[in-house]
């Protein structure tokens, strides 16, 4: 188990050290995904190899294209016409969100990678693993963000937050740096998110990320869920402390739409009360 050396010594009944390491795997996946974004512009610019192209707004691997669901949806809504390559490019992310939920956010998003590294750096400096969440907003603000974003875009006739959506912004900044030796001005948004991270964990991801909101909406009836076995639960509250989304997994909030299946709570649970399960419909 991760970081539990001291507390695991407690003499508590029913203790099982099942040792899940989702946190470790997740960091590796996040790092690999981040590395892909980092290396792609260099390969494109200096080696003129276009096999892997783009970032999380549209990623092309050979002839396989991914289109981000939010950006693709906005393109369709605003131009009021269908374009099949875009829709087919949106299918893989849509299916992943439908079955696995918001896993893009917790397992691939470059912003999450930066914030995870930030968490670890803060832990190294202050010794505290988690900060107290000082700004708390209702979780349902997430839906408001999504609706407001779509409406604002449709009024203006341009997908506004496509430019400001942080997952895409990281890739864009890397590309701007490699291609034009400069940063795009909108990168300030990333600095802002990093500042907010000093006050509340994953503040932006929780309630203000339109892409996260859309993925959460698609995956609200997902198959992969964190389920709580109340028989094993001792209500120690560890899972509440580690949850980056501010949920209460021991009360079954891992099955709610807001959970992004990162597995932090499963790692933290010492009594085998939490686990991923595949729900058949």
């Amino acid at each position: 188990m991760i970081g539990l050396g001291r507390l695991a010594e407690d003499d508590l009944p029913n203790q099982k050290n099942k040792g899940s390491h989702y946190g470790r795997y997740r960091l590796v996946v996040l790092g690999t995904a981040f590395l892909l974004l980092l290396v792609t512009p260099f390969v494109n610019y200096y080696l003129q190899q276009n096999f892997v192209q783009g970032w999380y707004q549209s990623l092309g691997i050979g002839r396989l294209w991914f289109v981000s669901p939010l950006e693709g949806l906005e393109s369709i809504l605003l131009s009021k016409s269908l374009y099949w390559p875009a829709i087919i490019g949106m299918l893989p992310p849509l299916l992943i969100a439908l079955f696995l939920g918001r896993v893009f956010c917790s397992w691939l998003c470059p912003v999450t990678f930066i914030l995870e590294i930030f968490d670890r750096l803060r832990k190294a400096f202050t010794g505290k693993k988690y900060i107290r969440n000082t700004i708390l907003v209702a979780k349902s603000v997430l839906w408001f963000t999504l609706i407001a974003e779509l409406l604002l875009s449709m009024v203006l006739g341009a997908p506004v937050f496509v430019v400001l959506s942080p997952p895409g912004l990281v890739g864009r900044e890397m590309m701007m740096l490699v291609f034009f030796k400069t940063f795009a001005f909108e990168g300030v948004v990333l600095v802002l998110i990093l500042c907010l991270e000093l006050l509340t964990r994953r503040f932006f991801c929780r309630s203000f990320c339109p892409l996260g909101a859309l993925l959460a909406f698609i995956g609200r009836k997902r198959s992969l869920q964190v389920t709580a076995k109340s028989a094993n639960c001792t209500e120690c509250g560890r899972c509440i402390r580690v949850c980056p989304m501010g949920l209460n997994p021991q009360k079954g909030e891992g099955e709610s739409a807001y959970c992004w299946n990162c597995g932090e709570c499963v790692d933290s649970c010492r009594f085998d009360a939490l686990g991923f399960s595949w729900k058949k419909k």
Binding site: G54, P159, V162, G168, M175
Partner: peptide, 16 residues
């Protein structure tokens, strides 16, 4: 008239 609505700003044309 349509371009800013349709383009998702993915930058792939720039990269290629």
């Amino acid at each position: 008239e349509l371009f800013p609505a349709k383009c998702i700003r993915c930058g792939r044309c720039v990269e290629v």
